[in-house]
Design a protein around this nucleic acid. Structure first.
Lengths: 171, 171
DNA sequence: TCCGAGTATCTCGACAATCGAGATTATCGA
DNA sequence: TCGATAATCTCGATTGTCGAGATACTCGGA
């Protein structure tokens, strides 16, 4: 964000970078605000979306994998799922094949909530996209796909890094 | 994400929407992982970025406004600033004009951390953008600017909404 | 069928971030 | 100087999270 802007191209790069960053921040705040509004905490909403995503991909998520995605300990995951299940957002089902496993499915309550979360967002997204031609959307699509891919790579790198001196403020 | 995909255009819209959502989720997880790595919690990192942003715009943020941005109560903000100040990330300064106000500035420690956070991200962003022509970047820029603007509007709407029955589970 | 190693999930006590009401400190107009 | 207003901080209660150990299940071998 804080870089040379001598050429038009550099200026574009700088501003796009800015916008991506702001988009990410704002998205997080939308999630936070929405969660508050519905008596959830942000983790709950993240979890709900992850459960829904996995299920729609035909590959229901387990508590273990959910914990990896959200970076939670096993204890926290159990508490999290308890909360969501108590609120009627999701269900726990044992995997019939491997009965050690628990598969998470969203319940009606959770589907409704996710819908309520995504619908206004989708409407706004559509409005913006309506102002772009199909060839332009092709460009945007290619850009977002690569950007998304790149960010996922970065996330995995950061996660792989081990804290060398985690919290030792000058001993 | 879950919509008709009859035409190429609809397909594009659907996939871009998907990518935006995934980008937001992944960005949040990067923040979470990075914060963990450095002994912070996600709120601390968000706050640090907000302080840095405000200061670079020439308009240093106050604890009150920081609390609004992050949706924290005044007590939490004080604790948050205490943590960050103790860790050497930011400084508190009284506003000389209105001495009730406290202005937050990032200290060297905080600048270094923010740099460490953004640099690898910037490198990746640059790599992706290098694969696009200047006219393509113009399109992406316009798209991201409008998208970002739209999302901010949505955030404010969600924040303005008041929880009608916040947490009364059929009590 | 029984055993033991391996894996997934859950239980529980300790810790830390957050909330929210009230106290504190500073400003501004009369 | 005094009272009203505003920004920040203090403190007790609540709640999400951690992490080690317990529990439940699977799978291969005898």
């Amino acid at each position: 964000m804080y870089r040379r802007r001598d050429t038009r191209r550099e200026q574009l790069v700088a501003e796009i970078t800015n916008n991506l960053r702001r988009y990410a921040v704002d998205a997080q705040q939308v999630g936070h605000a929405f969660a508050n509004l519905h008596g959830l905490n942000p983790t709950d909403l993240q979890a709900l979306i992850a459960v829904m995503d996995a299920e729609l991909l035909g590959d229901p998520i387990t508590p273990g994998r959910l914990g990896e995605q959200l970076n939670l300990s096993s204890g926290s995951v159990t508490a999290l799922i308890d909360r969501l299940e108590r609120a009627g957002h999701i269900r726990r089902d044992r995997d019939t094949a491997d009965r050690r496993k628990v598969l998470l499915h969203y319940a009606d309550q959770g589907a409704a909530l996710a819908m309520e979360f995504f619908q206004p967002l989708g409407a706004r997204t559509d409005t913006v996209m309506a102002r772009f031609g199909e060839d332009e959307l092709e460009v945007v699509h290619r850009f977002m796909a690569e950007m998304s891919e790149s960010l996922r790579g970065h996330r995995d790198e950061v996660r792989a890094a081990r804290p060398e001196s985690p919290r030792r403020p000058t001993g």
